[in-house]
Structure formats: structure tokens, C-alpha cells
């Protein structure tokens, strides 16, 4: 029995720990190591110290410098545009579905959730046809004359539209679960105190679902920083590399034409990871601070 007690926890966490070590921890450490090397994925990596970081952060003449900063800028634009929408829209839908007079809530919930289950590549093909100048609904029905994928700001709009379309369902489910957990008493007492719907939302709903909010905000931001498929499929990074996000440069450097430049790619990935880490930490800090006051 004593034996049992000792090993049981290990048995339960074991599989996860093993998978975590094999598929996340070791690759991450190796990735960080690779960022200090010159490596083509085949030979032995050559240690070059901080050279890769110097190149992407300080060597203003280098292609990799401009790729890194252009990629980072575009990634930040994407995060800045998509994350607020991915939080606010699902929250509004979740609140709206709580209204007493809304019928078929499960149906709406399902309809909004389904796009998230469609493979992003398949979805991107459909959406690029919707925005296609000759065949697309957008141009033919609404009389738009733009080549969406090749003109700004329309290129960004197509990317944001598909992202929001595919992404709001997941967050909405979390918010609905959170709102369902809020005690009805709170709403009733708020009503007795004369609070209207908006007041109830700000003073009852929002404070009560703080933790789902922190969670979705951090996860959505992390996901947005790793954006890759939408711009690749919708605009291929154009026009003039204005929608080429950092992950696209990283992938092109490591796994595209010609000999791999995995060292610089890893350095870019590490920098992306650091930015993400800092931003997530700040988010946690701000939200937690608010949660305790």
C-alpha cells in the first residue's frame, strides 16, 4: 500500500511529463541552442555565439534585420487588430445569448463554434474565393472594385475576417460557461438596486468572469503571435511583404528553398518567444492586480 501511494502520482503525470520532455522541452532547449549556431540542419551546428542576434537586431544592412523587424511589426499589427476583436465579439455574443428572450441559443452557439473546427487551409481557400475579384461574392454583390489580397488595408481585412470568423467560437464557449457560473442572486440584487443591463454587465458579469477573461486573453494573444496560416494562404505575405508575419520569415529561412538557415531562424523564434513571454507576463500581472483589488 505504501508502494502504491508513492508511485501513483508518478503514474498519472508520467505520460504527460514524457510527452512534454520529448516534444516540447528538448526541442525548445535545442532551438535555443541552435540560435547560437550556424546550422543548415544537416551538418553539425557551428557555435557562433551572439552573431545571429547581432545580425537580426543590430546589423541594419542585413536582409535578416529588415525581415525580422518587418515580420515583428506585421505580427504586432495582427495581434493588435485581432486580439481585441477575438475578446470583445465573443463576449458580446455570450452576453447576448444570455438574454431571456433569445431562443435557439444552442443552435446559435453551435453555428458560431463550427468554423473553429474547419481546417484553416480549407477555410482560407473558401474565403479567398469569397474575396476573389472575378468570382467573389464581395465584389459581385457589393460592387467592390478592389483586389482584396493585393491592396492595403484590404489585405489585412481579409486576414482579420477569417481569423475572427474561425476564432470567436472557442472563446465564446468559455465566456458562456463563465457567465453561467455567476450566481443569479447577484443579478437580482443588482436589479433591486436599480441597475440596468449595461450596469449589470460592467459591475456583475465582468468582475465575475475575470479568470476566463485572463485565460482567453493570454491564450488568444499567444495564438495571435504565432499567426502563420492565414496570411500565407490569403495574401502570401503581400502586397510588398506588408502582411508577411514573423513566422513566415522563420519558416522560409529554416525550411524553404535552398540550404537551410536554421541558426538565424532559431534566433528570430527565440526573440518572438521572448516578446510573447513579456507580454503574457504583463497581461497576467495587470489582470491579477485588478483581480485582487
Amino acid at each position: 500500500m505504501k508502494e502504491h501511494g508513492k508511485f501513483a502520482p508518478l503514474f498519472f503525470v508520467g505520460p504527460h511529463i514524457i510527452l512534454f520532455i520529448v516534444f516540447i522541452l528538448i526541442p525548445s532547449i535545442y532551438g535555443i541552442y541552435a540560435s547560437f549556431t550556424n546550422w543548415n540542419l544537416i551538418g553539425s551546428p557551428e557555435w557562433v555565439g551572439l552573431d545571429n542576434y547581432k545580425t537580426i537586431l543590430a546589423d541594419t544592412d542585413s536582409t535578416f534585420y529588415s525581415q525580422f523587424f518587418n515580420g515583428m511589426l506585421n505580427t504586432l499589427i495582427f495581434v493588435g487588430l485581432s486580439v481585441p476583436l477575438m475578446i470583445i465579439i465573443p463576449l458580446m455574443i455570450a452576453v447576448a445569448l444570455e438574454h431571456k428572450e433569445v431562443k435557439f441559443t444552442s443552435l446559435f452557439q453551435t453555428l458560431i463554434y463550427i468554423p473553429g473546427l474547419v481546417s484553416i487551409s480549407a477555410a482560407a481557400l473558401i474565403w479567398s474565393l469569397i474575396f476573389n475579384k472575378q468570382l467573389g461574392v464581395v465584389n459581385n454583390m457589393f460592387g467592390s472594385e478592389h483586389v482584396w489580397a493585393a491592396t492595403q488595408p484590404y489585405a489585412w481585412i481579409t486576414i482579420i475576417v477569417i481569423t475572427v470568423w474561425a476564432g470567436i467560437g472557442g472563446n465564446m464557449i468559455i465566456y458562456r460557461a463563465g457567465i453561467n457560473g455567476v450566481s443569479k442572486d447577484l443579478y437580482e440584487s443588482a436589479e433591486i438596486d436599480g441597475a440596468g443591463p449595461i450596469r449589470k454587465f460592467w459591475n456583475v458579469t465582468l468582475p465575475s468572469i475575470k479568470f476566463p477573461l485572463i485565460y482567453t486573453m493570454v491564450m488568444t494573444t499567444a495564438g495571435a503571435f504565432n499567426v502563420f496560416a492565414q496570411p500565407l494562404m490569403m495574401t502570401d505575405g503581400g502586397p510588398r511583404q506588408s502582411t508577411t508575419v514573423l513566422m513566415m520569415y522563420i519558416r522560409d529561412l529554416a525550411f524553404s528553398h535552398g540550404e537551410s538557415i536554421a541558426g538565424v531562424a532559431s534566433a528570430m523564434a527565440v526573440m518572438l518567444g521572448l516578446v510573447l513571454l513579456v507580454i503574457s507576463a504583463i497581461q497576467y500581472y495587470i489582470m491579477n492586480k485588478n483581480a485582487t483589488t
Partner: peptide
């Protein structure tokens, strides 16, 4: 970057 020159070793 891509061609490994041995000077870096």
C-alpha cells in the same frame, strides 16, 4: 549565412 564556412569554427 546558408553556406557553412569553416572560419566560424
Amino acid at each position: 549565412e546558408g553556406s557553412l564556412d569553416m572560419e566560424n569554427t
